[in-house]
Design a protein around this nucleic acid. Sequence first.
DNA 1: GTCTATAACCGGATAGAC
DNA 2: GTCTATCCGGTTATAGAC
Lengths: 229, 229
Amino acid sequence: MTVSLEKTKNLKTPKAQETRERIFKTALEMFKEKGFEKVTMRDIAKNCQMAVGAAYYYFKTKEDLIFDFYLQTQDDHYQESIKVFAETKDAQERIRKVIEIKIEQFIPYRGMLSALFRIAGDPNHRLSPFSEESKKIREEAVDIFRLALEGSNLKIKGEVRTFLPYLFWLYQMGIILFWIHDRSEGQKQTHVLLKHSLKIIFQLIRLSRLPGLKKLRQNILQMLNQVQK
Amino acid sequence: MTVSLEKTKNLKTPKAQETRERIFKTALEMFKEKGFEKVTMRDIAKNCQMAVGAAYYYFKTKEDLIFDFYLQTQDDHYQESIKVFAETKDAQERIRKVIEIKIEQFIPYRGMLSALFRIAGDPNHRLSPFSEESKKIREEAVDIFRLALEGSNLKIKGEVRTFLPYLFWLYQMGIILFWIHDRSEGQKQTHVLLKHSLKIIFQLIRLSRLPGLKKLRQNILQMLNQVQK
DNA sequence: GTCTATAACCGGATAGAC
DNA sequence: GTCTATCCGGTTATAGAC
């Protein structure tokens, strides 16, 4: 079952809802054009023909605007991913498509996303994907990978099954980080990396079944267990 | 040969040298106590009994103070690591000690380091360890791992030898990031992670020699080659 | 070249009146 | 819910002293 995201904040009137939306859309357009840092809250407010205070009434900080964007795309990502699962049972392809969809979504916003990923680097930050506040959204994101594996051709048993979705989510974060700073044209390096590294990962997963590698497998699982929060 | 770090900026007089040092030490003390964000440039200047302008004369930005810290510890790290190499030839132990030394160094500053690692997340930032500006310091850091492997009991040939030092440096960054946000007492989780993951990494390196895994090894090397800047 | 002193700018954030 | 005024801190500018 989907952990449906609470998009509608507790806003009293529909008008407020609409105002919030207006600020959000305006800000996003401006970020897209000039980047996160170049756009000031004063600019955003002016562009919305309202006072700075009004903008801050809806978004506690400038960074919250980005967080909201992250939240919105999360839902789209979920929907798009589901569709892919109907098309193929191949685990590797599913995972690859899921991550490619995410990247695709982000393309128009690539320039402003380093701001988001600077937040990501600090787990103490309320908006970090690792924070308590982001728990729900993180869980839905991990869920996509769980679903990708569940109906797939990849048969995995026991503990590996438990860890893999989270590990793939982590992997996705790494890929996106790489993509944001990938300066090759069309960020094609990222796609090379994605394709190759996925192949390797699946080779490793398959290898992990060999009896000769039992020790290695056990060690990895032990590590994951011990390190878990 | 060591890439000796240029610690002495182009400061004309010894007095200037000393003043710069005073600002740096004061700032670091204050950061240690209250964290990076709580301490203002005005505070620092006041504490040094000088004008704000003076502080800015030596450090272009507040973040530069942290960069300087990073630079200074880098040299200590190098010196300490060299000593370890005299004690043991075991590659795994060398690497583990090198990383443990780094963590040890950072202990008093753990609280302020998330500020540093938020910078790290944005490779476009001039102070990021991945930036052009940090190139020299990064290269010395990678060099430590090169030396750790070179005189060790781990015999590696060809391309793997080229990549491994950089990969270990990357690994060290990951471990430190984990450590900064490790809330277990005495950050013992980090040491568990370090010990276990190193064991696994060396198991993998040893495995990679098996003829049956030739394909995997080739794929990994191909990926590293293609993804390289 | 090394600093002091002081004021000002800029932009994120907040308080409190309406 | 929205506005105006204000704070706060990083940063810069100015002008001058040694």
